[in-house]
């Protein structure tokens, strides 16, 4: 098990390095950061000055390793726009996004897993069809639109929840629902198909022949097997929640990383954008690593080869 975790961890680190390189190249090769900072109308002289000032005239590998060296020591450079260390900026905003992402995940799990399970246990029933309807509509509805509808519904027509800001838990109800809804279809479908497959498996027939039925059968024999694929998808979805926070935080005026990302992109604040891409990628990699470890803990076939 330890060896397995170490191996997965090593792979995760390799992926993280690759991502850091890709993020760096995208920002420094695909665009010219000096022009982005200087603005469209800047004269070549101004651009050259900016280049020299931010060290952008050095060769690309030197700049990458300079940046990477900083990252490894926790120094992500200084924001061009806020004139503060980027790491400090991100740390200040991170907890709002963490709250949003995890509460959105909680909403997803709360809706998707019971609905998927009920649909699986009663295939082709009204509840199955309803679950399918929920999945299709949740997939079809864009996030920002659902956000606006929620604001109109619960902020304007029935003003029972705050629609802007991040001061209390009540502020997070609507954004968490909006962000969480986008993951419901994938998770619900996987729960449904996974459980249907497991319920038809030979070992479930064995358990029934041993005299298990109903809830004990589900809990003791089906759930663990059916959850294996769901865990992997939940991890990916949680990663996506951080990316999805860009839109949701903007709609509900939550001062988190998503909003910071939007502001830095608009302000051509390259060090901040670079760190945010890196952080979101690391979250993704870490979540996948966690899913691998959880799957290994649940499934002995992975743990003991």
């Amino acid at each position: 098990m330890l060896k397995y975790i170490a191996l997965r961890g090593l792979l995760a680190v390799l992926v993280a390095f690759t991502v850091s390189l890709a993020a760096f190249l995208l920002l420094n090769v695909a665009t010219d950061p000096a022009y982005a900072i200087a603005g469209e109308d800047a004269t070549p002289d101004v651009v050259e000055t900016i280049r020299a000032r931010y060290g952008l005239n050095r060769p690309l590998p030197v700049r990458y390793f300079d940046w990477l060296g900083g990252v490894l020591t926790g120094d992500f450079g200084e924001s061009y726009y806020w004139h503060k260390p980027v790491a400090e900026l991100v740390a200040d905003r991170a907890d709002e996004t963490l709250k949003l992402a995890f509460s959105a995940m909680f909403v997803t799990i709360l809706i998707a897993i019971p609905l998927g399970a009920l649909a699986a246990l009663n295939p082709n029933s009204w509840i199955d069809r309803m679950a399918l309807g929920v999945a299709v509509s949740a997939q079809a509805v864009p996030n920002f639109w659902l956000g606006l509808i929620m604001i109109i519904l619960f902020g304007v027509m029935f003003p029972i929840l705050p629609v802007s800001g991040d001061d209390t838990w009540r502020h997070f109800v609507l954004p968490a629902f909006v962000l969480g809804a986008s993951s419901v279809p994938a998770v619900m479908r996987l729960t449904r198909t996974g459980l249907i497959e497991v319920m038809g498996a030979d070992y479930i027939r064995t358990a029934r022949a041993k005299g298990f039925r109903g809830w004990p059968l589900l809990r003791r024999h089906a759930l663990r097997n059916a959850l294996l694929p769901v865990i992997s998808v939940l991890a990916v979805q949680l990663g996506q929640k951080f990316g999805g926070s860009v839109i949701t935080e903007s709609i509900f005026a939550i001062n988190g990383l998503g909003r910071l990302a939007l502001e830095s992109i608009l302000g051509a604040d390259i060090p901040t954008v670079q760190m945010l891409i890196f952080v979101f990628a690391i979250v993704f990699v870490a979540m996948n690593l966690l899913a691998d470890i959880l799957n290994a803990a649940i499934d002995p076939r992975i743990r003991i080869g």
Binding site: A201, D202, Y203, R205, T206, A207, R208, A209, K210, G211, F212, R213, H221, R224, N225, I298, D299, P300, R301
Partner: peptide, 27 residues
């Protein structure tokens, strides 16, 4: 309910064709 408690298992046991898949892999 009574059938599974009193009969399936304590009275009638059953063995199936597929030994490779008839045991739960995670326990």
């Amino acid at each position: 309910r009574n059938f599974t408690r009193q009969i399936a298992g304590p009275q009638i046991g059953m063995i199936f064709q597929e030994p490779m898949t008839s045991l739960n892999p995670v326990y």
